[in-house]
Design a binder for these strands. Structure first.
Length: 442
RNA sequence: GCCGCCAUCGUCCAGGGGACUAGGACGCCGCCCUCUCACGGCGGAAACGGGGGUUCGAAUCCCCCUGGCGGUACCA
């Protein structure tokens, strides 16, 4: 079994493309097949080394490897031209100057459901001759058989007038040459498939097995785009998602096991994935669910691993203690710094929080806290909690009336990790200093 | 327009003639926990697009309609 993944070289690996890559990868790993990576484009302008490298980068981040490639499709143009010549010589194709308008005119004359048939003019674009009778049926692992009557098919253009190959010719030939046995790709290609099959048939070549994946849409049912938040794996990476969580989530977009489980390790995915069970319905990408899932994966990481991941993500070091007290509160890597950055960079500036909690009552409470804290020995969460609760008891107020002013004093905002854990991490000197500063500012 | 595909909670997935009072997950709502934000726990609302068939029986099979999507390029 040989599969291929052929992303377009636009420099962005869209989520749909990522899922296609994942599914190919899962099938290959599950069956011990070979996965070939091909950068698919007949347009040299777009296939820049930078763009290709970005695609590869995204694939590597997802931790999807390949067995052969990457191969640039554009490098095979000579072969494509040879095939075109062959098709022309055998009468399976012809040259014609017919334009899109000519095709429309033909249909107006012969009826809308009648496919375009051109004349051999000896020059112009190369069109494949579709047989007048019969039909081409696409056998699909996911969708079953789809029949296309030849009478409905237009003679497709397979090469430009200058002889450069077009997509439907190029993919067919490239897959053939690469010995691809299984083509797993997006459902937007089903209508193209009969054209590719006709090329193969004209060449007397064997056809691969197809599996067309349902399309992916954004939350509004429209095409997935930046407007929906992250739309590419590069954006997902920047947004602080874990590759394992992304793999898990994306695998479930269009596929579900007989079980009702939703948290499935990649190892399990490889073991259980069955392309024939892939859904035929288009799916919507829902970042909210991905966030939830990412949080679950984040919490499964050991503190050491989480710290290392977070240090790489933020570019900071010495994050261990603050990560430890924040891990229950973040869903993505990006959530960490806004929550706990104040521990390292000093209190945040949130005037509203100060105004609300550092009023006369708050300041009075803070002053008592300052005294109580100074006596704590040793400086550890347990003793810190006891001291703070002591102040609450003496002042006979709600805990919040004491804790929030302290929080605002040390964090600058009303949201932070647990208050005594934070004081613990901050240390005696820094904590008292921040409280003093808050009292002085008030 | 034409060709083709698809149709279960708001979303993702399960159920593929009787086990369905349609199941799970995210989200939402309520309660509990609670120093904020979260985590966690418990409970709840929430779907078979419509109409015809077939059948003793249809979410499940067939047809029509509707809706969505894709293709219809000298794009990929």
């Amino acid at each position: 079994m040989r599969l291929r993944f052929a992303p377009s070289p636009t420099g962005t690996l869209h989520i749909g493309g990522a899922r296609t890559a994942l599914y190919n990868w899962l099938v290959a790993r599950h069956s011990g097949g070979t996965l070939v990576l091909r950068i698919e484009d007949t347009d040299r302008e777009r296939s820049t080394p930078e763009n290709v490298e970005q695609i590869l980068d995204a694939l590597r981040w997802l931790e999807l490897d390949w067995d052969e490639g990457p191969i640039m499709q554009t490098s095979a143009e000579a072969r494509h031209r040879a095939v075109i010549g062959e098709l022309l010589a055998s009468g399976h194709a012809y040259r014609s100057n017919a334009t899109g308008d000519d095709v429309k005119a033909f249909k107006a004359l012969h009826g809308d459901e009648r496919g375009f048939r051109g004349e051999d003019e000896g020059e112009g674009a190369v069109r494949l001759r579709v047989p007048d009778a019969g039909e081409t049926v696409v056998h699909d692992l996911i969708r079953g058989d789809t029949t296309f009557a030849h009478t409905h098919l237009d003679d497709p253009v397979i090469a430009r007038a200058d002889g450069t190959p077009l997509y439907n010719l190029a993919v067919a030939i490239d897959d053939l040459d690469a010995g691809i046995t299984h083509v797993v790709r997006g459902a937007d290609h089903v209508s193209n498939t009969p054209k590719q099959l006709l090329v193969l048939q004209a060449l007397g070549a064997p056809q691969p097995v197809y599996a067309h994946l349902p399309l992916l849409h954004g939350p509004d049912g429209k095409k997935l785009s930046k407007r929906h938040g992250a739309a590419s794996v590069q954006e997902l990476r920047d947004a602080g998602y874990l590759p394992a969580a992304v793999r898990n989530y994306i695998a479930l977009l269009g596929w579900g096991d007989t079980d009702d489980e939703t948290l499935i390790s990649t190892e399990q995915l490889v073991q259980r994935f069955d392309v024939t069970r892939v859904s035929k319905n288009p799916a919507q990408f829902d970042e909210v669910k991905l966030r939830w899932m990412n949080g679950r994966y984040l919490r499964e990481l050991s503190s050491e691993d989480l710290t290392a991941t977070l240090e790489e993500y933020t570019g900071r070091s010495g994050l261990g203690p603050s990560v430890e007290i924040s891990r229950e509160k973040v869903q993505t890597l990006a959530d960490f710094w806004p929550l706990a950055g104040f521990i390292h960079d000093g209190p945040a500036d949130d005037p509203q929080a100060r105004e609300q909690w550092l009023d006369d009552d708050g300041l009075a409470a803070l002053a008592e806290v300052r005294v109580a804290l100074a006596a704590v020995e040793p400086w550890a969460a347990d003793g810190l909690e006891a001291a703070l609760r002591g102040v609450v008891a003496v002042r006979e107020v709600k805990p919040k009336a004491v804790f929030q002013p302290v929080r605002v004093a040390i964090a600058g905002t009303t949201i932070s990790p647990g208050i005594w854990e934070t004081l613990d991490v901050l240390g005696r000197d820094e904590s008292l200093q921040r409280i003093d500063a808050a009292i002085a500012a008030g």
